[in-house]
């Protein structure tokens, strides 16, 4: 059985609806940040969730943890339906499901010492018998993530970005969770520090038997560490499958263009690239039919009117596109 099973999960935001709108009869504006998402995460794997800013990937991660209350759908974690847990049960569940944040500056309370920040989960869940035990556990986890023992009584502003990210990781891991949402944990870091944190996250996963939902906009990172990949566009998953499949044989035109856009050191000089026209459409007025049709070079009439179904295109590999059967790739189109 999967460790995490998400079914039909949606998170919609209601636009502001003031008196004036009501008088003028304006309709509710609804932003479907996350729309009808199904996915599973197996125990011990890393599911990479990739997409551009505003596609809803962070909202999905937070909706799974109920940090943002989902609008509809269910989240099953180890057999328990997270979406219906009462506050006490949810609190107990939080010990098992954790999150690591993107911004190493915003994610730590500037008025608390490292010992207080990292020790908070122990205090909240009563995991340490006394102050001394708490301190001991904090020191142990801090040492494991690479902080020096003398540093735990310092304040966050006394650390660099990479060290702060280590503190955030220590806080997430001290309660020995099983599942962690990594919300772009390395995006704000410099290249050399990024590599340190990735290496650390992989080591910790192996040691502690963790399962990650790893959110990123960087295909190189996802391609390096994920076992499976889900590609998100405007609140929906457009393609999902084993990482080798997605990298070698991307089937959705959006995945294809995303991959061709990444500058790589292994390529020198210009290379063939799929040019997407235009920007992301406004989430307030999403396109009809396939959400990608406004930018898709392959779009036909059906794409404009009908939303494509999710189809299986290979073992464990699914995609949602009207033109899958033609086995087109955009690079063929571009060279034709």
């Amino acid at each position: 059985m999967s460790l995490l099973k998400v079914e039909g999960l949606s998170k919609h935001y209601q636009g502001k609806h003031g008196l004036f709108d009501r008088l003028t009869g304006a309709r509710h504006t609804v932003v479907r940040a996350v729309n009808e998402i199904d996915l599973t995460v197996e125990k011990g794997e890393i599911l990479g969730l990739i997409g551009e800013s505003g596609c809803g990937k962070s909202t999905l991660g937070r909706a799974i943890l109920r940090l943002h209350e989902p609008t509809s759908g269910t989240v099953n974690f180890d057999g328990a339906n997270v979406t219906t847990l009462d506050p006490a049960a949810l609190k107990a569940m939080r010990r098992r499901m954790q999150i690591i944040f993107q911004d190493p500056y915003a994610c730590l309370n500037p008025r608390r010492t490292v010992a207080e920040i990292v020790g908070l989960p122990l205090k909240l869940h009563g995991l340490a018998a006394n102050e001394a035990e708490q301190r001991e556990k904090v020191a142990a986890i801090c040492a494991r993530v690479g902080l020096k023992p003398g540093q735990i009584d310092r304040y966050p502003h006394q650390f660099s970005g990479g060290q702060r990210q280590r503190i955030g990781i220590a806080r997430a891991l001290i309660s020995h969770p099983e599942f962690i949402v990594c919300d772009e944990p390395v995006s704000a870091l410099d290249v050399s520090i990024q590599a340190q944190i990735i290496a650390l996250l992989l080591e910790l996963k192996r040691e502690m038997g963790l399962t990650y939902l790893f959110i990123s906009h960087d295909i190189s990172v996802i391609g390096y560490l994920a076992d499976r990949v889900a590609v998100m566009y405007m609140g929906q998953i457009v393609e999902m499958g084993p990482v080798e499949q997605i990298l070698a044989n991307p089937r959705h035109p959006y995945t294809q263009s995303l991959m061709s856009a990444v500058p790589e050191v292994d390529h020198s000089g210009p290379r063939k690239r799929i040019k997407l026209s235009g920007d992301l459409p406004s989430p307030l007025r999403p396109p009809t039919g396939c959400k990608f049709h406004t930018r898709c070079p392959l779009a036909v009439d059906a794409c404009r009117s009908q939303q494509p179904d999710i189809e299986t295109v290979g073992p464990g590999h699914t995609a949602a596109c009207h033109r899958l059967a033609e086995k087109l790739t955009l690079l063929d189109e571009a060279s034709a």
Binding site: L67, L90, C107, N109, R111, L120
Partner: peptide
């Protein structure tokens, strides 16, 4: 801010978040 979200993710109560996380800041 993410540290407030982090406290919620850790299972902190509203009172804790308001008085211990937000108030000092």
């Amino acid at each position: 801010l993410e540290y407030v979200e982090a406290a919620r993710a850790l299972g902190a109560s509203r009172g804790h978040i308001m008085l211990r996380e937000i108030l000092p800041n």
